[in-house]
């Protein structure tokens, strides 16, 4: 069953110059299945927040239609608002209310009580409990994030919208946050989450790669990487920056990017041999030992490949 259906959604914003209209969303279509974690991956300005605002009924689209949990985002906005939990990108709880007061406020606004729904947030709330008398504004970043998640869950929503919940958060806290999402999934909650971190894409059931208001690809992480469709090489040497410059200057190189401790390179000729690469490097005077191996692409390789088309 499909919990979210998005059909050909457009959104325009007035542009800075009169010549062009800014298309924030350019004919977006996708579905999210019941109980799925769906990731919207893309940089700032790709249109993630506009799409979230449309689906949570905070913004009207300029074209297309969408339903959430079977309800139309325009006609049935009141039903949708009761059923979704939304964690905006910017921390938007009441800074001068305590942890406890924020939870009570959001529970009351949804005509329920904290006690009634404690089981859903219990696992997250026990980490917050020592600070329950502290004002939200005085919490650390990780704790603010946990409180925001609790407030978004306090009315037992069927769909959870998380807009960049892990941006600017360190890798350890990010990992913990994703463990919480996985355990919420076990309780049947459908989650749509946006992130600029490519490594988080692998933790989603399916992902959509968003750039400049268009979806470049929608699939499971496994299928997206399987469809890369050309050999990818990883190169490493002691002098990585000169190696990068030499490989970019190679007339056989199609793309060449730094990738952590290796450079990832695709070539114009799909049948290129390691010996060809080595003899080129020798020829331009790069004589130190170079490790060359063919590797399987990751999500980030795929995203960059799609960006180049």
């Amino acid at each position: 069953m499909e919990t979210i259906i998005v059909e050909n959604i457009y959104k325009y914003y007035p542009a800075a110059t009169k010549k062009e209209r800014n298309k924030a969303l350019n004919g977006i279509s996708f579905t999210v299945k019941n109980g799925e974690i769906f990731g919207l991956i893309g940089p700032d300005g790709a249109g993630k927040t506009s799409l979230f605002h449309i689906l949570t009924t905070l913004l009207l689209a300029d074209g297309g239609r969408a339903t959430v949990d079977g309800f139309d985002v325009v006609k049935d906005y009141k039903q949708i608002r009761k059923r979704v939990g939304y964690m905006p990108g910017r921390f938007s709880l009441y800074q001068d209310l305590t942890v406890e007061e924020n939870l009570q406020f959001f529970a009351t606004a949804f005509e329920t009580t904290v006690e009634k729904n404690l089981d859903l947030i219990h696992e997250i709330y026990i980490q917050l409990e020592p600070f329950k008398k502290r004002r939200a504004g005085k919490l650390s970043g990780g704790m603010k994030q946990k409180l925001a998640l609790c407030c978004a869950l306090i009315h037992k929503p069927s769909v959870l919208f998380l807009d960049e919940p892990t941006t600017g958060v360190d890798p350890v806290s990010r990992k913990e946050f994703w463990q919480m999402l996985k355990s919420l999934q076990l309780q049947g909650i459908t989650t749509i989450v946006s992130t600029p971190y490519m490594d988080e894409a692998n933790l989603c059931d399916r992902i959509g790669l968003l750039q400049n208001g268009s979806l470049l690809g929608i699939d499971t992480p496994e299928n997206l990487t399987r469809n890369f469709g050309k050999p990818l090489f990883a190169l490493k040497a002691e002098q990585m920056y000169p190696l990068l410059l030499h490989m970019r200057a190679y007339d056989q190189t199609a793309t060449c990017y730094g990738f952590g401790d290796y450079h990832h390179i695709t070539f114009i000729d799909p049948h290129i041999q390691q010996a060809d690469i080595r003899s080129y490097l020798q020829g331009v005077g790069f004589t130190e030992p170079v490790e060359i191996r063919q590797i399987a692409p990751g999500i980030e390789d795929c995203f960059m490949d799609l960006l180049n088309h």
Binding site: G168, P196, M198, Y257, M304
Partner: peptide
């Protein structure tokens, strides 16, 4: 480099290098 696409992020690192 927060919040940009992977290619833009790498172009930024070119400047650092």
């Amino acid at each position: 480099t927060g919040g940009v696409d992977p290619i833009t992020r790498r172009k930024f690192w070119d400047l650092i290098y």
